[in-house]
């Protein structure tokens, strides 16, 4: 194994003409690039991030609801479930288990999802206005399966979590976690495939429906 490593890297160095003289400047240039983290050309910043995020989420076939504050989320979720004739029962990331779900008539279990869960409720770390994308980070209270296995994924998005683009989201992740969480999942609407005759079908392996509830206040 190590043989192959040395052979491959040796071959690369030989092709690139690596020498003791040029390794130091190249290292410095690398360190500069890693520290600078400069962004490439980007589209225009949206004046109203919430409106832009909402419009682009809907363009991705997600549905969006808005509530005044986090405490209003369970009732909005209950209404969505009733409207879609879904059971008032869901698996929920432990992170959001503290909301008054019972008061809204929704029975939640705070755990990772299993195959038969129909509805999964998650929060999100950031949401991206440029593309209408949710950014979920895994951790003890935020398992990845909840946004993946159930047929319906409901995501709670605090309006303050909506940022311009992925670059702002990366900076936030660096400062909040220090190092990247095991999985950062960017979710942009329901799972889909176009493999058969390039016809888009929703619900390939992940959720058929993604419903976003934006909470404006705490």
């Amino acid at each position: 194994m190590n043989d192959s490593r040395d052979l491959i890297l040796g071959r690369i160095r030989e092709r690139l003409g690596r020498s003791p003289a040029n390794v130091a400047p190249a290292q410095t240039a690398m360190d500069v690039a890693l520290a600078a983290k400069s962004a490439g050309p980007r589209p225009r910043t949206d004046a109203d991030l919430v409106a832009a995020f909402r419009a682009r989420s809907e363009a991705l076939a997600s549905t969006v609801d808005q509530v005044a504050c986090l405490a209003d989320v369970p009732r909005a979720v209950a209404a969505y479930l009733a409207e879609h004739k879904l059971p008032a029962r869901a698996v929920c990331v432990p992170d959001l288990a503290g909301l008054d779900w019972r008061g809204a008539g929704v029975e939640v279990e705070a755990r990772g999802a299993i195959d038969h869960d129909l509805v999964g409720i998650t929060g999100c770390f950031r949401a991206i206005a440029e593309t209408g994308t949710l950014m979920l980070c895994t951790g003890r209270a935020t398992p990845a399966t909840v946004s993946l296995l159930p047929e319906t994924h409901i995501a709670v998005v605090p309006a303050t979590a909506i940022v311009d683009g992925m670059e702002e989201a990366w900076s936030a992740a660096r400062s909040e976690f220090g190092q990247m969480p095991r999985a950062v999942n960017f979710i942009s609407g329901p799972s889909r495939t176009g493999d058969i005759e390039q016809t888009i079908v929703l619900g390939a392996h992940g959720p058929y429906r993604v419903h976003v509830v934006i909470a404006h206040g705490q």
């Binding site: 190092q179 969480p181 999985a183 999942n185 960017f186 979710i187 329901p190």
Partner: peptide
Amino acid sequence: PISNYVSLLTGMK
């Protein structure tokens, strides 16, 4: 504009 899923995976559980 973006695929449905973009995942950045770092290390293990």
